[in-house]
């Protein structure tokens, strides 16, 4: 299927927000926001704490009803999709999913097949094959029989990504998937997501905290501040000291990442003034 799409046979998905406002308990978090998610790319949403990143992701994922404006998937308002039909195109890995006590890895990953099953269409061998494939792609195959509660943080996060992959959606949203992971496992997970984007042409949208990792892994960067999008585009075009100041209130230098040339933000802070050296 993905190979066909590479040749342009399958229509690409469009996912866009138009005048979107999102609120909790009547308190507006995001107001009148426009956003287009580029198909087939890795989009990373960054911004200071409480700027509305996760809220935006929940709105796009249909977990939060807009107080105004609309979100469209393939030119159709997402609230008009039957729940399972939407969940066969767009999947989300929320910030803190819950693993029931004692559940095994294989069982958990298998539950990702829910939108493909119905009252009269229960578990099939195709489901089994897709689950096995999701576990192979995330290197969790060896963990199949283990209990999720007994795994390390990095393994557990790979298992959740496997569950999201088992959902087999073309668009995958992830809310801070690297939180609670040490730096090695952060890179491992982001590499995995980049690989899924590259080899399976999955559109990936994720919220990340680390600006430098965001700049490295994003094709498309969405910078938010106070419930608004303040900049979008390729990281190299978007990330400037002025923008970092505006979005994060942080003074910084920006240099090319010595490994891959993407912009790298060097925070300055109050106690360390820049030395007069040239790069």
């Amino acid at each position: 299927m993905s190979r066909e799409r590479l040749q342009g046979a399958e229509p690409a998905h469009t996912l866009e927000a138009d005048g979107l406002s999102l609120a909790y308990d009547g308190r507006e978090v995001i107001g009148d926001l426009d956003l287009t998610i580029p198909d087939g790319d890795v989009t990373v949403i960054v911004g200071a704490n409480a700027c509305g990143k996760s809220t935006l992701l929940r709105g796009i994922a249909r977990l939060l009803r807009p107080s105004a404006g609309i979100v469209r998937l393939d030119d159709r308002q997402i609230s008009t999709y039957p729940a399972k039909e939407f969940a066969r195109v767009v999947g989300i890995l929320p910030q803190s999913p819950i693993a029931p006590d004692g559940i095994t890895v294989a069982d958990l990953v298998g539950r990702g097949r829910h939108p493909h099953q119905g009252l009269f269409r229960s578990w099939s061998s195709a489901d089994g094959a897709i689950v096995a494939d999701a576990m192979a792609a995330t290197s969790t195959t060896e963990l199949a029989g283990r209990r999720v509660g007994e795994l390390s943080g990095g393994q557990r996060q790979r298992v959740w990504v496997a569950m999201a992959l088992a959902q087999d959606t073309d668009i995958l949203l992830l809310d801070e998937p690297t939180t609670f992971l040490d730096v090695t496992h952060q890179i491992e997970l982001l590499d995995l997501l980049a690989e899924l984007n590259h080899t399976r042409k999955k559109t990936i949208v994720m919220v990340l905290h680390d600006l430098n990792l965001a700049a490295r892994y994003a094709h498309h960067l969405v910078v938010m501040a106070h419930g608004e999008v303040v900049a979008t585009g390729a990281p190299a075009d978007v990330l400037t000291p002025e923008l970092v100041q505006r979005a994060f209130g942080l003074e910084s230098h920006i240099i090319p990442d010595p490994v891959c040339g993407t912009p790298m933000v060097i925070p300055i802070g109050r106690f360390h003034r820049p030395a007069p050296i040239s790069y």
Partner: peptide, 23 residues
């Protein structure tokens, strides 16, 4: 019994369940 599959997904959290197509 008919709602049990949805409940099994709800065990994973409200947002996870919503993302998997459970109202």
């Amino acid at each position: 019994a008919a709602l049990a599959p949805r409940l099994r997904v709800l065990q994973l959290g409200d947002d996870t369940a919503g993302g998997l197509g459970v109202p």
